[in-house]
């Protein structure tokens, strides 16, 4: 097979390609047009682009073919769509870009976009966000649902997009660059708590898949594998990918949030003492 066919989409989705082009396009235009002092540094730009391109790669290249016909590759795909990609995008702090475009929206359009803001704030309630984060993983891995999702093209796309969008929401909540001391962003303690809480059900699910004796996801058996691999090996690898990397990412997330909290600790108390002094 020629190399180019590995880079072409297996299941061409115009909507997906359009979304990725728009995201990168809006990001690029904002970079060029925004004032110098707001512009993110090159490290942040690379992180953002890498996160976006990783998500694109697992959805619109040959990788998608293997994700449809190998359970463990499918788990890798969701690891990128629900964890790694959104983590990189959130860490790159695209807030200045979003602010730039937000200012460009005319007030009347902004008025009509208000319901989106309400939905966003509802979904970013910490309890709802974490239940949604874990719930979606459990929902799509529920064996009968998983079976249908792998059989129906439509459900398959809904599954992948819901994972990506939910990943972006959750990790943005966790890595929101705005300080909770100055804005109403979620407090660092709560962020750490959420990260620890969502790790536990993921570990339980992953361990359950790893230690299951029978075939939990027979759809890969039914639909044929990309290459002849023993089903037990496929399931074991998939279970490990559900179990270990998400737990590791929670720990890394906790460390990043802790570091940020420690950095801000001094600033925050200084500001408070100043405020106290003037009172």
């Amino acid at each position: 097979m020629p190399v180019s066919s590995y880079l072409l989409p297996y299941d061409f989705s115009p909507l997906t390609i359009l979304s990725f082009v728009l995201v990168l396009g809006f990001y690029g235009v904002a970079l060029l047009k925004m004032p110098e002092q707001d512009r993110p540094g090159s490290g942040r730009i690379v992180t953002f682009t890498l996160g976006v391109m990783l998500c694109y790669a697992v959805m619109q290249t040959r990788f998608d073919y293997y994700s449809q016909y190998m359970f463990f590759v499918h788990r890798g795909q969701h690891l990128i769509l629900h964890h790694l990609g959104p983590i990189l995008i959130a860490l790159s702090n695209p807030l200045p870009v979003m602010r730039f475009w937000h200012q460009k929206i005319s007030p009347s359009v902004r008025y009509w976009l208000q319901p989106l803001g309400w939905i966003y704030r509802l979904l970013q309630q910490p309890v709802i966000a974490s239940v949604l984060f874990v719930g979606l993983i459990y929902f799509w891995l529920w064996p009968p649902i998983h079976f249908d999702a792998m059989l129906s093209r439509q459900l398959y796309w809904i599954m992948n997009w819901s994972m990506l969008l939910d990943g972006l929401l959750f990790w943005w909540l966790i890595f929101d660059p705005r300080s909770p001391a100055l804005t109403n962003a979620l407090g660092y303690g709560k962020r750490i708590l959420l990260l620890a809480l969502v790790a536990i059900p993921q570990m339980i699910l992953g361990a359950w898949i790893v230690f299951s004796r029978g075939m939990v996801y027979d759809v890969y058996e039914v639909c044929g594998r990309a290459w002849p691999m023993p089903p037990e090996t496929d399931q074991l690898l998939g279970g490990l990918l559900t179990w270990i990397p998400p737990a590791m990412m929670s720990i890394i997330g906790i460390l990043i949030v802790l570091r940020r909290a420690m950095h801000e600790d001094g600033k925050f108390s200084k500001r408070r003492s100043l405020a106290g002094g003037s009172a």
Binding site: M150, R153, V222, A226, M229
Partner: peptide, 27 residues
């Protein structure tokens, strides 16, 4: 055709006598 019905097939490496296994849908 297999893509239309969301299934696939794949070939193993042939052995010394040229026989190879094929993965395919079992449904």
């Amino acid at each position: 055709l297999t893509k239309r019905y969301r299934t696939t097939f794949g070939y193993d490496e042939p052995d010394a006598s040229g026989n190879y296994n094929v993965s395919h849908s079992s449904a």
